[in-house]
Design a protein around this nucleic acid. Structure first.
Lengths: 206, 206
DNA sequence: CTGTTTATAGAATGAATATTCTAAAAATGA
DNA sequence: TCATTTTTAGAATATTCATTCTATAAACAG
């Protein structure tokens, strides 16, 4: 745990610069339409340098996705474990947090999504697996919150797992649709609250 | 509109056989991990023959996806226009129909989904566009049904468009999750009904 | 049967591109 | 400064296919 040398800091910076450029390219054209030459040009580092930091294209992609999805996981985890918050508030907060995350990370989110629903189109079974494990963990967070809500008698006693899956997808789709609207933060928040209300109180009259 | 000659029928059969084999391969490995040689072997037709029926790999993929997504659109359209059915019944029927379609067309559904959320990873902007137009049309069908429900005072007066988007995503998520469960038809139907109930009456108590 | 068209089977071609390699430039350290 | 290491820049290589081509076999017409 010593202070990193200048070289180490430089290396780190370069690595991050390369990753950032790669992210941009991957998000724009997907894995297969992005060439190492593209990334090299975008990052303004020669091919050789890139291969010094990453064993190959696939690995770079892998690192990129996993890192960010972890971040989303952490955000949701934190919300789930706020002691002072009521369950309903937590769920709404999770919805809004995910929407914000999607907005702030449009690029990587596109990748994340395609990895989740997709066939293993990149040829990296480990990536698919890890992404889906991370997703599963998030669903599980929702499940716990919902269970707590059932205990409290706040929620009806539907199977928590089913509710959680449904909620996860609602959250995803709401957050995703934010990306295609030109809304300011307030309008957006308002819409998310409305969707949340639909989910909790239902669309049926009475 | 004369009766097709034997040659025409043969051609049609071959075309379908090739498409079926291609579908299998594409669904298994995605567009980029499927080679024309693979398809040729799977279809048991030589490469040359394949190129006689399709101008190229991309076009084959395009035809495959569009054809089936159209089919789903038709199914939903028919449900939406049943005169004798109540709105709520229609919506539930749509949910179940889509689930059945997903089950019957797992292969193509995987492709459909990745096309919907994806960057244009295949390099066919038209395909992405058409898939999304078809999806939009389905959302619009839901919107009409929901509007009717609002008119009837069956549903609360949320913006129909937002409800429709939400419903479309719920339908998708429910249908999709059916693919990973080993349920018999009854269990499955039961779960779908439950999800539909969640959507209409909400998860909140009281 | 015989010549002609069409289909088969898969080899050859050419383009794209991930990865490696080389030579020149820059940074580093004595 | 000068020797040594590291980085840069991008050329060379090797591989993987989409697509085309060729030669043989089958179907067909008269």
């Amino acid at each position: 745990m010593t202070r990193p040398t200048r070289k180490q800091r430089d290396d780190n910076r370069k690595r991050r610069e390369i990753l950032a450029a790669a992210l941009e390219m991957f998000a724009e054209g997907g894995f297969h339409n992005t060439t190492m030459a593209n990334i090299s040009k975008a990052a303004q580092y020669p091919l050789g340098t890139i291969y010094k930091y990453f064993p190959g294209k696939k690995e770079m992609y892998h690192d990129l996705v996993i890192e960010r999805v972890h971040e989303l996981g952490r955000i949701l985890y934190d919300i789930a474990h706020k002691k002072e918050m009521a369950v309903t508030e937590k769920l709404l907060a999770a919805l809004k947090a995910q929407a914000r995350f999607y907005r702030d990370n449009q690029d990587v989110v596109k990748i994340y999504i395609s990895e989740r629903s997709n066939i293993d189109s990149v040829g990296m079974p480990q990536l698919n697996e890890r992404v889906n494990r991370l997703h599963e963990r998030m669903v599980h967070l929702f499940e716990q919150m919902l269970e707590q809500g059932i205990c409290n008698e706040e929620f009806k006693a539907y199977p928590a797992r089913d509710m959680a899956e449904l909620f996860a997808d609602i959250v995803h789709s709401a957050a995703w649709s934010c990306l295609f609207r030109e809304e300011d933060k307030d309008t957006s928040d308002h819409r998310l609250s409305m969707i949340f209300e639909m989910f909790t109180t239902g669309i049926k009259k009475q």
